[in-house]
């Protein structure tokens, strides 16, 4: 079987995979292949170089019509594109396989995200961009802690801002990452450092000059904002915002919290091995992979819950 067929088969199996065992079956298939799962792109690169040189030399020597030059240049690019495309497909497979294994390791499960309309109804956070908006992944998890259990979803949100230029439009792509937590200790509150529409009427400032410089706070009323923003909570949020840039914390009317920020992908993992060494790749999935940034966010949310709940229920 060729590497291309094997990769296709593995991709199909991964699309159907729902459990750890399904992933192990894919790893087993990779190991039983017996040869390194990687592409030898050297012939394609050599073909590209040969066609490019031949095209350049003949055009320089004979100076034929520019159309021919363009046609041969496109021809030269085909092997290069094929090489890049198939390598990137293989890399995507490796990444997805390793990620999915880590997700199952952590007792998490990819699910369909709520619709954008539903998210817009709940949070100002998703009212961004003026072109495409999509949730690229939405993974549910559950974490048991001493005082509160956290039922959460991790997401990656992609949105595009379209700007009119002199000729046509330009498109800027942005990403936000975050966690949505069910059943928080308060409701109807927005603490934002990255500007989004505020759904709540009362603006609140805290006693901390530093906090007020960084965040704006909106709540349903002053009392709920004051009750939530205890001094320890203020310091924890300031500390969190130093690590997670442009952080927003938004709690909807049904007490579902959404914490969001820029640049830090919570499910980002570095591949320790590639499928070229299928055995090492498979072995690297046997340990328990920790999403360290996600863990930091969950610990932060847990501390907020502990600080803002009632100890005498």
């Amino acid at each position: 079987m060729s590497v291309t067929k094997l990769v296709k088969q593995m991709r199909n199996m991964l699309a159907q995979a729902k459990t750890h065992d399904d992933l192990q079956a894919i790893m087993q298939l990779a190991i039983s292949y017996g040869r390194p799962i990687c592409y030898n792109n050297v012939p394609l690169y050599l073909t590209f170089i040969a066609i490019a040189i031949a095209t350049g030399l003949t055009w320089w020597r004979y100076g034929y019509h520019i159309i021919w030059l363009i046609a041969f240049s496109v021809l030269a690019l085909i092997p290069l594109i094929v090489a890049i495309f198939r390598s990137s497909r293989l890399q995507d497979l490796e990444q997805e396989l390793f990620l999915r294994d880590a997700i199952y390791d952590n007792g998490m499960q990819p699910v369909d995200p709520p619709s954008m309309a539903e998210l817009d109804r709940r949070y100002g956070e998703f009212v961004r961009g003026n072109y495409t908006r999509e949730i690229e992944y939405y993974v549910q998890g559950y974490s048991e802690k001493e005082e509160h259990n956290l039922s959460y979803s991790v997401y990656k949100f992609h949105y595009v801002v379209r700007t009119k230029q002199k000729k046509g439009y330009s498109y800027s792509h942005y990403y936000r990452y975050g966690v949505i937590l069910d059943n928080f200790t308060t409701d109807s509150l927005l603490i934002m450092s990255s500007s989004v529409p505020a759904f709540y009427p009362t603006k609140w400032t805290t006693e901390s000059i530093d906090f007020n410089k960084r965040f704006k706070v909106y709540a349903k009323d002053e009392l709920s904002a004051a009750k939530f923003l205890k001094p320890a909570v203020i310091l924890k949020i300031e500390e969190f915002a130093k690590r997670f840039p442009k952080a927003n914390i938004e709690i909807d009317a049904d007490a579902r919290l959404c914490v969001s920020f820029d640049t830090i992908d919570l499910l980002d993992l570095k591949l320790p091995h590639r499928l070229a060494d299928a055995k090492a790749f498979s072995d690297s999935t046997k340990g328990h992979t920790i999403f360290s940034s996600l863990q930091e966010v969950l610990d932060f949310l847990y501390l907020l819950m502990v600080q803002t709940d009632s100890n005498f229920k």
């Binding site: 006693e207 901390s208 530093d210 205890k230 001094p231 320890a232």
Partner: peptide, 11 residues
């Protein structure tokens, strides 16, 4: 919270 309030005051 008292420790945090004092820290905020000092800052």
């Amino acid at each position: 919270n008292i420790g945090a309030a004092i820290q905020i005051f000092n800052r």
